[in-house]
Design a protein around this nucleic acid. Sequence first.
DNA 1: CGCTCCCTTGATACATTTCAAGCGTTGTGG
DNA 2: CCACAACGCTTGAAATGTATCAAGGGAGCG
Lengths: 239, 239
Amino acid sequence: MAKSCSCLQRQCILCETLSTAQDECTEQQFCEIEGSISKDVYRANEWLFQQGMPARDLFILKYGHVKLSSSLPDGRCHGLRLAGPWSVLGIEALGMESYPFSAVALTDVQVCTFRHRDMLAALENNPKTSLKLVTMLNAELRRSMEQLRNIGVLHASERVAWFLLSTAVDNTCPPVSRSDMAEILGLTMETVSRVLSRLRQCGLVDAPSNRRSVRILDPERLEALCGDTRQAQLPLNCA
Amino acid sequence: MAKSCSCLQRQCILCETLSTAQDECTEQQFCEIEGSISKDVYRANEWLFQQGMPARDLFILKYGHVKLSSSLPDGRCHGLRLAGPWSVLGIEALGMESYPFSAVALTDVQVCTFRHRDMLAALENNPKTSLKLVTMLNAELRRSMEQLRNIGVLHASERVAWFLLSTAVDNTCPPVSRSDMAEILGLTMETVSRVLSRLRQCGLVDAPSNRRSVRILDPERLEALCGDTRQAQLPLNCA
DNA sequence: CGCTCCCTTGATACATTTCAAGCGTTGTGG
DNA sequence: CCACAACGCTTGAAATGTATCAAGGGAGCG
């Protein structure tokens, strides 16, 4: 029997963990780990998990996009970030009672699901996995702090520009609605719409109003918009 | 020779790590770890480290308060959070080239300094330490996400109320200036000052204008201010 | 066709920022 | 010991960016 995860993807922390685990686990331990991975599918708008739910699993996103968001007791809600393929979700709850935020599928989504308790066991048995995990959490933390700073200091158009640039792959953004973007950027849907309209008029992006799709046409001018205040504060005269 | 860190504090991750390490390291390994801890002092307004500096150390704050902040290329700056005694600083840079943010002492400060490379070695040798670290990073991540949400959705007075409540120990806040608070909350100094003046008028806090000191007089009414919007949006009629 | 959903756009309201002046304390040097 | 500057804070008036409210358009779908 081949000792490996059936996907064997380089980008997947689980697959990599398993491949290093081969050297360090007994055959039995390894099979236990591999056996506890399940592959699941969620439809668009389904919840992977909700804030406050008992935390049991972590997810490796293999296909599709997910939105993470956190809400206040009074119902107000704020998007934390978008997650794309090969993101690890729900690991922030490892060792805790409940998920501190919610995750909803924006598109149809395919994931590997893994129990927290199995992850904890893998950590005990495999120091290399710990290191990988620590590195991952650190990266997450940096991203989160960068976002904190950006929400704190950037203007509306700078935030939109930054969002587009930071989420786009090949100048194409994930399929988010205006309200999703607004929620993540701490703005209203209307403001996001206005900014996108202006960016469209200036030829910086292609953002059809009917479809959830934004394409970046001029990455360089867009970058100028979110880096330097003086340019960014005058987004109307984009001449 | 006694095998323990000389402080032996329950709250200190380093001390705890060392005490568990006793069971798992050889005497030589243990002494290497212990020997690599240095105890340092920084004066108020000194930098512990700056954004972009090569990342070498992590710090356990033993006495005093530190402000973490991140800046944009154009100079705009945003406070990330305050750190008090027993915080671990600079661990977000573990395994990375440079510090992703800066840390400046608000008061005179006493720290234990520990090399990243020694921490990494400790992780390899001691799975329990990894778990502790992962738990810590997760807690940090949750805090950071909570803050992200709060900056995103809360109004000025709600943010101030939340800041006071979340940083106060025994209803007494760390010695931060109005501008420090403003920087962390994504507001201006003037706005913070106005909110504090109103809170003072309403008898919720004691905030003398000459000293960097805020004391919470009525925690319950203050909590009502940051939990529920409808109350929070009318902070002027605090009757 | 009529419904819903998402988006756009305009007018207005409002919270916060910006700009500006002044106050009290602290520390320094004549 | 007193002037003086520096610093942090407060407060007011005006400016401004974004939210809110409102109306309407277009695509998709039963």
